[in-house]
């Protein structure tokens, strides 16, 4: 591993909360954050991805990853039946093996929240709803807040909102900020995950700025992507956001969660992300309360790897559910 290249540009020094009512002050604050060393960031993310995790450590990692999954279905063709079967899978991921842990949450569109709640019953699994005109975020503030209100009143435990990327690229950072604040207020007790849609933010500098803006605005989690835009979660962008979470914690004492979503399909990928968390934030964040995977097909690969570890024979797609 290369140690000569230190990309880890922490946000240090005295932290001053910017004037949260002025776009100029907000802009100044965001542009005052240290620039991201692209080469260093990608190299560090890649080098942390080369760790070899075997046997008992791998078994633990697989179970931890399963317990961190937000099992997701976000398709136009989602039906109540699809949501019900997703919930059944969330409760009992591997029908042949009761020792597999349950996932953290199911993630659905707002109109499916009621069906998901009903299907999950008393199981300790949260229902997360995407809201604010997901995935584009192109609707009026009023409609977005109603979207959130609707999901919350149906019983959503978590809300995944998207930021207004249009406003972001126009430089209206205060609007983006105020929208998150307004959504947070409507959420009430529901946890708020703020999706930055890093694929549309274009630069690492933007990702760092948006992470800070979301955390200042009251996000409980920051999340990489909707899964509808490529590139979605990458190790580098996740590492960068994890560093933002760490720096924010150091500066303010506030603990924020992180959720990479989209494009994480294999056990190998999941293990790499867990290494990133461990090395950047430490063991405290290695819990479903503070780290989640937004995924659908990842679960099947984790189950197949789990079967391989317990039986010694390679498994196949015939031995996991078809989603």
């Amino acid at each position: 591993m290369s140690t000569s290249h230190n990309n880890d540009t922490s946000v240090s020094g005295t932290f001053e909360v910017p004037d949260l009512t002025s776009n100029a002050a907000m802009t100044k604050f965001l542009f005052g954050l240290p620039g991201v060393d692209k080469v260093g960031l990608e190299e560090r993310a890649a080098s942390l991805g080369t760790r070899s995790i075997k046997n008992s450590a791998k078994a633990e990692g697989i179970d931890l990853a399963i317990s961190m999954i937000d099992l997701t279905t976000l398709e136009g063709m989602d039906t109540r039946g699809k949501v019900r079967s997703l919930c059944a899978k969330a409760c009992r991921p591997d029908p042949m093996d009761a020792t597999v842990p349950q996932v953290a949450a199911v993630c659905v569109y707002g109109d499916m929240v009621g069906h998901a709640k009903e299907a999950l019953g008393n199981a300790p699994i949260n229902v997360a709803a995407v809201a604010t005109a997901f995935p584009s975020g192109r609707a009026s503030r009023r409609v977005k807040l109603m979207d959130v209100q609707d999901a919350v009143s149906l019983g959503a435990d978590e809300i995944d909102m998207v930021i207004d990327r249009g406003a972001w690229h126009e430089g209206r950072y205060l609007d983006v900020f105020e929208e998150i604040v307004a959504v947070k207020e409507v959420c009430g007790d529901a946890h708020l995950k703020v999706i930055l849609e890093t694929g549309e933010l274009k630069t690492y500098d933007n990702v760092r700025r948006a992470s800070w803006l979301a955390m200042l605005a009251g996000a409980d989690f920051i999340k990489t992507s909707t899964g509808k835009i490529a590139p979605a979660a990458t190790p580098a962008v996740t590492l960068l956001m994890l560093q933002a979470v760490r720096d924010f914690h150091r500066q303010t004492g506030t603990v924020i969660g992180m959720k990479p979503a989209g494009g994480i399909r294999t056990t190998k990928d999941a293990m790499k992300y867990l290494v990133l968390v461990k090395e950047t934030l430490g063991d405290r964040w290695l819990t479903p309360d503070l780290f989640r995977f937004g995924a659908s097909s990842l679960l099947n690969d984790l189950l197949m790897q789990r079967q391989k570890l317990s039986t010694g024979a390679y498994s196949g797609p015939d031995y996991v559910t078809v989603d």
């Binding site: 079967q307 010694g312 024979a313 390679y314 498994s315 196949g316 797609p317 015939d318 031995y319």
Partner: peptide, 9 residues
């Protein structure tokens, strides 16, 4: 041995 025990073969 790995291909013989492979559940997807």
């Amino acid at each position: 041995p790995w291909l013989a025990s492979h559940m997807d073969v």
